[in-house]
Design a protein around this nucleic acid. Structure first.
Length: 835
RNA sequence: GCCGAUGUGGCGGAACGGUAUACGCUACGGACUUAAAAUCCGUUGGAGGGAAACCUCCAUGUGGGUUCGACUCCCACCAUCGGCACCA
């Protein structure tokens, strides 16, 4: 197929030139260029999968590249790096299947990704590339782990963890889907089993992770998701005595004001007190129930459609507010993992308790009067306390306060805050992850590796299969496992768990600042200069986990004095998804995957970039259309035609088919229609209108409308018989962030011999005074409906405008002599006649 | 169930409370061509009227409201998508 312009030659040429000339190197403090204001613009770095890039990946990368190029032209010192989040299961799975070392697979995949990303002309500073699997990188991941450990934020515990039969590995809570399958591969058999695990105390930061969301400029939706995940609730803990026993049951409730309505209690099946409370008569029933629920998958336990189950323990508790005797039940609708694992049940004002009470015929006592009358039973909102002794008549918030104070005075309870957020299960029984730098010694216990021994490298292995008894593969590397205890020198063993994939991505944005430093993970002056990340762009699928984990690490590093900002990412934008042409999610199975290589081969990187952004708002999910790419490609073809002498281009094409492309390419001439002359008023107005729109749209990340405005410019300018050089030059600057290769090529040709790069030119300013039109088409409405359009001078006075509108022939006819009740005049726009 | 987002032509989408449908795609017509492709020019929300320039009415998920004027603001509802889900 004939190419509209020789993008293949142009793109290769400029990619090489930019790289050779270090056009996108960010200047560190002390270097020339660092006196400029800094701007740190970051993409979520990819996991380099074997499948290579698909068109969804570059969506965010294209947006950030356009902004990075724009910021540079605006005089910023821009840090725009790229790297690889390269630990992960697929490479390890591949190793198990084929014996290929995961590092080899990873290297190969990284090379593919890098090539594909580079062919799109992104302005990354490749000197700063990082790879989380590089020992020089994970050395510092391990170092940060040691800081967490020393601060008491990393601990070991024997905990029931999610075990996936398919992955032969433990999963984090967050990796188990609600339907009980694993998030990674969709394996069905995920169940709990107790195992020794490393856990990070993220809950210690729950409050700050919640509060400091206020410091960020993130989409409200993402903040809300994090808030929900952290799940802070205020309430009280209350202690219930057990009749004829010294035992106490502590519950957490957000509604202490309903204490008078508590008609029974429920313990989670795993609650430690169940054994001691259960009476001899009930023991058999209770034990059977507990065994049954232990076998249940979370899916079965949390299935809302399912009927509530439970059994009576035989024990009786005493309600501290009225000494009433209430039965204690065991039921699996109460979770051991939240609050105290025990509740007071107030069936009148809690849907779950009500359902349970109805099923087991437990009493329901109304203690809250809804504000607007209505059904009291099942009412869960705020109202007025009734049947509650001293609380009667108090509105819910006051009743909560009063009863909480009352309980606190008597030592029966106190105000409390609970979070849904759980501690972070940090170990994995896998090979391809960062080794946890810990040694287990019989004498000294858990001993951190001295920092001088980092990185603790992964041992070479032949067999990557997990032992299957939950022993990680590293346990098989006997020589590696057996070490001397760093503390006492006695025999000891290394930790064989590795870190989860999240670890490396928790802090990579800091390493980009100082990627080659081998004495510290990031030098303080550099960190202070570059942080925070000004703009972070990535997929919404990381709304909670990655963003929460890295915020957590960042805060720990802040507390230890290693970083200077409370939050890592100032502004966050989530790019949408690109669907296949059929409107379905792209997947191999559906066969609707678009490969960027094919698109670039057919239309060039510039058309690809432009199309990705022209498709619609960055945040939206939208379907791919190859015909749409042709649209932006044609646009670039028109730009080429605007600048280039057609005859010499045809000669080039002829020569290219004869095999002398290189020389003929150089012979392509600039169009004779481009002349050195003063621009006329309407030419200047068009240029400045375009500058204005493109500038404002880049600021608001409205790439699609910026591109549409440039299309309007080209459509107009193509009609000009002679084209003032300066106007076209101004346009090239605007085009530069969007279609950088073509713009750079035309820039060079427009001023033959010029050696400066367009991408380091300064962004053009627009002059408002040039935008003023002399004449405006005013709209005349009658009762809000457009009835006429009249052309009038732009500087017409309001009174004159009104007069002209009323005088217009058509309006006169439509008014039929009625006199207007009111006339609204909007300067420069319209006149609305109310008749 | 709860939280969040989104509903505008055949399609992707534009529109500070002020000319709805910019820009692009598709489709159709024309030019160029032996022909096709590519390219260029024109038409393209719907309905009706007119020989024509044009004119009239209806349309931004549905129903109300505020306003001289609503895609935009308010209330209720419907649909689709995403997230969470017995969190006491």
């Amino acid at each position: 197929m004939r190419k509209l312009y020789p993008f293949h030659l142009i793109e290769a040429k400029w990619q090489k030139t930019w790289l050779d000339r270090g056009a996108f190197r960010a200047s560190d403090p002390g270097e020339p260029g660092a006196e400029k204001p800094k701007y740190y613009i970051l993409d979520m770095f990819p996991y380099p999968s074997g499948a290579g890039l698909h068109v969804g990946h570059p969506l965010g990368y294209t947006a950030t590249d356009m902004l990075a190029r724009y910021r540079r032209m605006r005089g910023f010192n821009v840090l725009h790096p790229m790297g690889w989040d390269a630990f992960g299961l697929p490479a390890e799975q591949h190793a198990i299947d084929t014996g290929t070392h995961p590092a080899q697979t990873t290297l190969k995949n990284i090379n593919t990704f890098r090539r594909q990303i580079q062919m799109l002309g992104f302005s990354y500073d490749w000197n700063r590339e990082v790879d989380t699997t590089d020992p020089q990188y994970y050395r510092w991941t391990q170092w940060i782990f040691l800081q967490l450990f020393k601060k008491g934020l990393a601990y070991e515990a024997e905990v029931p963890v999610w075990w996936c039969d398919g992955c032969m590995a433990v999963l984090a809570n967050e990796e188990v889907r609600a339907d009980g399958t694993c998030e990674r591969k969709g394996h069905p058999n995920v169940y709990r089993r107790p195992l020794r695990q490393w856990i990070l105390k993220i809950t210690a930061y729950a409050e700050r992770l919640l509060q400091d969301l206020e410091l960020t400029q993130w989409p409200e939706a993402i903040k809300e998701q994090q808030r929900n995940w952290i799940g802070r609730s205020e309430g009280a803990t209350v202690e219930f005595r057990i009749q004829n026993s010294e035992l106490r049951i502590e519950v957490f409730t957000t509604r202490p004001d309903t204490l008078f309505g508590a008609t029974y209690m429920v313990l989670a099946p795993e609650h430690p007190l169940v054994d001691q409370l259960t009476t001899a008569a009930q023991r058999k029933t209770v034990d059977a129930y507990r065994t049954a629920s232990a076998r249940k998958s979370e899916l079965e336990r949390t299935d809302l459609a399912k009927e509530k189950t439970g059994v009576f323990t035989g024990a009786t508790a005493i309600n501290p507010v009225n000494d009433e005797k209430i039965p204690v039940w065991v039921a699996d609708y109460v979770m051991m993992g939240y609050g105290t694992g025990a509740i007071m049940a107030v069936p009148a004002h809690d849907a779950r308790d009500l359902e349970f009470a109805r099923k087991f015929n437990l009493p329901v006592r109304l203690v809250v009067q809804p504000p607007e009358g209505g059904d009291s039973e099942g009412f869960t909102g705020d109202g007025t306390a009734i049947n509650s002794g001293p609380l009667d008549g108090l509105p819910t918030p006051k009743a909560k306060k009063k009863i909480t104070a009352w309980l606190a005075d008597r030592g029966l309870g106190k105000a409390a805050v609970q979070f849904k957020l759980r501690d972070w299960l940090f170990s994995r029984q896998r090979y391809w992850g960062e080794p946890i730098p810990i040694v287990h010694c019989k004498k000294c216990g858990t001993v951190p590796l001295p920092e001088s021994e980092l990185p603790l490298r992964l041992p070479e292995m032949k067999d990557y299969t997990p032992a299957g008894n939950a022993e990680p593969p590293l346990a098989k590397a006997i020589d590696w496992v057996n070490v001397k205890c760093p503390a006492c020198g006695g025999p000891a063993t290394r930790e064989t768990n590795t870190m989860p994939q999240w670890a490396g991505s928790c802090w990579y944005y800091l390493r980009f600042i100082d990627p080659k430093n081998d004495s510290v993970f990031v030098a303080k002056p550099k960190e202070k200069y570059w942080m925070p990340v000004d703009l972070y762009v990535g997929g919404a699928e990381h709304a909670v986990l990655h963003l929460l984990y890295s915020r957590f690490w960042h805060k720990v590093l802040f507390d230890l004095g290693h970083v200077s900002t409370l939050e890592p990412f100032l502004k966050l934008v989530n790019q949408g998804m690109i669907l296949g042409e059929d409107g379905q999610k792209m997947s191999k199975a559906r066969g609707n995957v678009i490969n960027p290589d094919d698109v670039v081969r057919g239309y060039g990187a510039d058309a690809f970039r432009l199309y990705e952004m022209f498709l619609g708002p960055l945040q939206a999910t939208k379907p791919w259309s190859t015909q749409g790419v042709e649209g932006t490609y044609r646009f670039l073809g028109r730009v080429w035609k605007l600048f280039v002498d057609e005859k010499s281009f045809e000669e080039f094409e002829q020569a290219a088919t004869d095999g002398d492309a290189g020389n003929a390419f150089r012979q392509i001439k600039i169009s004779g229609s481009i002349v050195e002359r003063q621009a006329a008023g309407d030419e200047l107005r068009l240029l400045h209108k375009t500058i204005r729109k493109v500038t404002l749209d880049l600021e608001s990340m409205s790439f699609n409308t910026a591109i549409s405005e440039m299309m309007i410019f080209v459509n107009e300018a193509s009609k000009w018989e002679s084209r003032p050089r300066l106007v076209l030059e101004g346009f090239l600057k605007l085009l530069s962030p969007f279609a950088p290769h073509l713009a750079e090529e035309l820039w060079q040709r427009l001023n033959a011999g010029r050696s400066s790069l367009l991408c380091s030119e300064s962004w053009p300013a627009y002059d408002e005074s040039l935008l003023i039109e002399t004449e405006i088409e005013y709209v005349v409405q009658i009762n809000g409906k457009v009835r006429a359009r009249i052309l009038l001078p732009a500087d017409i006075g309001q009174a004159e405008l009104e007069k002209a509108a009323l005088a217009s022939e058509k309006i006169q006819r439509l008014l039929e002599g009625r006199s207007p009740k009111k006339v609204i005049v909007v300067p420069k726009r319209l006149v609305n006649i109310v008749a």
